[in-house]
Design a protein around this nucleic acid. Structure first.
Lengths: 239, 239
DNA sequence: CGACGGATTGAAGCACCTCAACGGGAGTGG
DNA sequence: CCACTCCCGTTGAGGTGCTTCAATCCGTCG
């Protein structure tokens, strides 16, 4: 697990700019001491985006990096004829801006209303250079993202529609595991799910209906469902 | 480009253990000074693998990291029923072992006869902690791999068979660009190509035949070909 | 209420897969 | 030197899983 153990998290004064942050233990900031964190936070600002708004655009100069504190982003790429692939979703605590290139390779858009801490890239790099723990934390985040992306390669290259949807629901279930309520929330539209799984929305819809019909899941709303037979769902996800 | 500019490469004594290394400028080692490099090299050994041999196995404990100096590796994952996805190929200069997990997530096997420098993970991590330039170089490598993996997500999720094969040939062409001869070498079998592109070998074969028939490429051997109409190939790759 | 956007359902098409046969170069052995 | 085999790649014919196109449903909002 990437999250810093809470025992390691320095306690902050109520006056600290990050005092209220709910994702500090998850975010890269979690490795910083109170003083360093204050300095870090002061070099950035908080920004908000509404659903559908673009945070960074593919081929934009990568002038800033971001830490997502609330909401949900999607990372996507568009082919010339309009086909779209979503490379991943960013959840609170995730970092946006892992690149050594001049330009962003993917577009980042808000799926839900989102709050981010934005840092000028130059200032960020400079700060990182003086904070070895932050640097190695960034490496860990990059390694983690790389493993996730490669796992997704297996899904897109070799899994059937049923396996893809089952894998996706399990991934979301993992994300929701900390919740008290048993519902899995689908914060994104069917179009986003389809573009993430390399399917069409009709296929996603049919697969979800199929899982419902075979009593593996139960729909509790258009954006929420419950896993009835977790074991079966895991079997389906692996083929 | 990730390669260290040759102007930055320290000149080595003929007695230096890395004097003969052909990929130092490409590998992570490229950022080390002669003395540090000597110390680094001494903490590892050189190992050889023949085609088909396994370097690391999926779910093996990640006890070592490697730098590939010659040959070709494939990173792959097997589903329970035998379906296989290749997540990527490692070329000389590439680094094997970007992970913060205890276990490897993918199997690494030799495609061609391969030579690697192997370092015990603990010793490696320790060394890296004392070499900030190496640490940031590793981050750059991870970021680069991440971008490549996400690019491959687009290919697997949204591209047609023709587009996949065309993209693949262009990738190889880029790898061979430094060569004097105009031939693109396909160092891996059709099976490997198919498992990398999320296709069947029959489909790969048909697509290559199609490109040959439409005079976009010319076959100069089973493992080599020439690009006749580069522009057309690029159009085909993008849809 | 009607209109709208997102989701579902249905029917037909097609890109790629599956299964099967064939080809051709490399190695082997007589 | 040719015959044989093996392995890998190619080609062909038929099947299928997902897509495409189209209609319908349903919750939301004016």
């Amino acid at each position: 697990m990437l999250a810093t153990r809470s025992a390691d998290l320095p306690v902050l004064e109520p006056s600290h700019p990050c005092f209220d942050c709910k994702v500090r233990s998850l975010a890269v900031c979690g490795v910083l001491e109170a003083a360093a964190l204050r300095q870090f936070k002061q070099s950035g600002i908080t920004v908000q985006y509404e659903p559908g708004e673009t945070v960074v655009f593919e081929s934009d100069v990568a002038a800033s990096v971001y830490s997502l504190t609330a909401g949900l982003l999607r990372l996507s790429k568009l082919l010339p004829d309009g086909r779209r692939q979503i490379a991943g979703f960013l959840f609170p605590g995730d970092f946006l801006g892992i690149t050594m290139e001049e330009e962003h390779a993917f577009t980042a858009e808000a799926v839900a209303p989102s709050t981010l801490c934005r840092f000028p890239r130059a200032r960020f790099d400079e700060f990182v250079a003086g904070q070895p723990t932050l640097e190695s934390r960034l490496y860990a985040v990059a390694a983690h993202e790389l493993a996730a992306a490669r796992q997704q390669l297996v899904l897109l290259g070799r899994k059937t529609a049923t396996e893809r949807v089952a894998s996706f629901l399990l991934m979301l279930a993992g994300r929701c595991a900390h919740n008290a309520e048993p519902d899995i929330i689908l914060p994104m539209s069917r179009v986003d799910i389809a573009d993430y799984l390399g399917l069409r929305i009709e296929t996603v819809s049919r697969e979800i209906t199929g899982l419902k019909t075979s009593r593996v899941i139960r729909l509790t709303g258009r954006q929420s469902l419950q896993v009835v037979d977790r074991e079966r769902l895991e079997q389906l996800a692996e083929g």
